[in-house]
Design a protein around this nucleic acid. Structure first.
Lengths: 114, 114
DNA sequence: TACCACTACATAGTAACACCAGCTAGTGGG
DNA sequence: CCCACTAGCTGGTGTTACTATGTAGTGGTA
């Protein structure tokens, strides 16, 4: 796995969680599947370990329901599905991100007035 | 209405540095002034200590030139100005942010193809 | 059988960053 | 004399993504 840039690594802090929750909002997923879906979205360098750790974290924070589903190829899958609390948290995430995004867009184009 | 909290704190990791560099690109600043300019931009809850630590860091990384200027009220000011390396770094930052921003925008509006 | 590739999950250790809480120090006003 | 404002600095903490590695099930193949 090619190392991801330092800037991207730091910028993903706080946003990767939202990305994963938003991806789960589209359709439930298990860890291995989530990694694949992130890669499809262009996040080609997200490490598997990072995804598993993040899923454990959001489960611990009560944002998802987990169901164990047997697999035809390999160990049983832990399928994560967003629950009501997760959807609320995701909504908060979008609010936070929208604020930040607007401020940065303003800075980027030199329009410093609101 | 100020979106503060844990989400914002985490999301600022990696982006706050770019925000400060972009602000310096507009006009050089010293720490106390930078804090004020960030508040004007809507980042009302950025701690002073955070700003000073960040300025020390970007100086250490050679992204800025520093000039000590006497003040009429209070201790001398350390004025930070973006140098060539800082401008290159800022350009990289905008590239990274644009990538992330586009991915998130896509997720936000449910356009998950392409 | 022995080996390998792919699927699937897990974790210990590390680096980076923003925050909190507190500090020193200069200037001018009540 | 004390306080408010300006101005800069630091140690310790919590959170997060990354690296590197380990465990385990299934199917193919030599």
């Amino acid at each position: 796995m090619l190392p991801v840039g330092k800037q991207m690594t730091e910028m993903l802090k706080g946003t990767l969680e939202g990305i994963v929750l938003a991806t789960l909002a589209v359709k439930p997923a298990y860890g291995y599947d989530m990694t694949a879906r992130l890669r499809e979205q262009g996040f080609t360098d997200i490490a598997e370990g990072t995804v598993y750790a993040l899923l454990v974290r959001i489960e611990k924070n009560g944002l998802v329901e987990v169901e164990k589903v047997p697999s035809e190829k390999g160990p049983p899958r832990k399928v994560y599905a967003l629950n009501a609390q997760g959807r609320d948290y995701l909504a908060e995430f979008w609010k936070t991100w929208s604020f930040l995004s607007q401020r940065l867009e303003t800075l980027h184009h030199g329009r410093n007035e609101a």
